[in-house]
């Protein structure tokens, strides 16, 4: 009896794949779009770093120039000390944060803990509009409203004298109104939405059970906020302040318009100062590519870049600690 034999051709269940099938073209395209940001950052760091070191490499200035306090690029022996700009950026930023942080954190607490829905639905869109108002408009408001008000209201010497201690402090009045304080005030409003929205997220992230637990112990809302919410959200609030600082230190046009731009070390909040961004804005157009003066401006932008990269790293460290805890 003949055995019935059937032979089967061996067929792989997986169809033979062509190379077009092996490479997922959409995936490659979307990856390239996302990775383009890496390329942009790498190029930006490279170019600004290269331009920023020319003052030392090509023009033979010593690195110590950064900490020199005399800025006089037009002198016979030009001096490119950029300390006034670094300190100016520092003090204007600190001033802005000192004004803005309490206000913004209060506003974030209001939105997250106190405000009923109707109030939230008015204040939150208002904050979004604040974000959208262009820098030059803030600067123009500063020039037309804030600066004249400052010089009209405090034209004379401001001094505080106590009966026994004597004179505690004194400073000259606003000569023109263009001043450190004007810069800090304008900036404090500009960074308000940033600090508010990031701290708001931090407060919202505190679990509801902790609030109810605290209130069940008989604490008032303010006690819960002060002893529970603020400690619990502290790293988030810190992140918010660092982000606000970054924005304040990098803001150019609004500050330049109200700050007076005097390249000297900051003396008093009533006096004109200058910042890294405002000097770059002012001088870049008046200088020639490759001359030491412009190279000093590039060095200043490298300093700005270092400030912002440091703050990105700082935010990461703060958040890692929060997630690790």
């Amino acid at each position: 009896m003949a055995q019935m034999t059937t032979t089967y051709e061996k067929v792989s269940l997986r169809a033979k794949r062509r190379w077009q099938d092996r490479i997922d073209i959409p995936q490659v395209v979307v990856f390239m779009a996302a990775a383009s940001m890496i390329a942009i950052v790498a190029l930006l760091l490279l170019f600004i770093f290269w331009q920023g070191i020319q003052l030392f490499v090509k023009d033979g200035q010593s690195i110590g120039t950064i900490f020199d306090s005399t800025w006089n690029p037009l002198a016979d022996t030009p001096e490119y000390g950029i300390l006034p700009f670094i300190l100016g950026t520092l003090v204007v930023t600190v001033g802005a944060l000192a004004i803005s942080t309490p206000l913004s954190v209060g506003l974030a607490l209001f939105l997250s803990e106190v405000a009923p829905n109707w109030a939230k639905s008015i204040v939150q869109p208002a904050l979004e509009i604040f974000v959208g108002i262009p820098s030059v408009v803030w600067g123009w408001l500063g020039i037309t409203v804030l600066v004249p008000w400052l010089s009209d209201t405090f034209p004379k010497k401001i001094a505080l004298t106590l009966p026994i201690v004597g004179q505690v402090f004194s400073m000259p009045g606003f000569l023109t109104g263009f001043s450190w304080l004007a810069g800090s005030l304008v900036l404090s409003i500009m960074v308000l939405p940033t600090i508010t929205s990031v701290s708001y997220d931090a407060f919202r992230a505190v679990p509801q059970e902790l609030r109810t637990g605290s209130l069940a112990l008989g604490t008032t809302r303010w006690q819960t906020i002060r002893h529970l919410l603020i400690p619990a959200a502290l790293s988030g609030v810190l992140t918010a302040v660092v982000l606000g600082m970054t924005r304040a230190a990098g803001e150019a046009l609004a500050v330049q318009m109200v700050i007076g731009n005097s390249p000297t070390l900051p003396a008093a909040i009533t006096q004109p100062v200058t910042t890294l961004t405002s000097q770059i804005t002012l001088d870049m157009g008046n200088t020639v590519f490759g001359e030491p003066w412009q190279d000093a401006l590039w060095t200043m932008s490298l300093v700005l870049l270092i400030i912002s990269v440091t703050s990105v790293v700082l935010v990461r460290v703060i958040n890692k600690r929060r997630l690790g805890a």
């Binding site: 990098g250 803001e251 150019a252 961004t277 700005l304």
Partner: peptide, 9 residues
């Protein structure tokens, strides 16, 4: 990083 780089830079 790009979000935190000053616009002037």
């Amino acid at each position: 990083s790009i979000s935190s780089v000053p616009s002037i830079v």
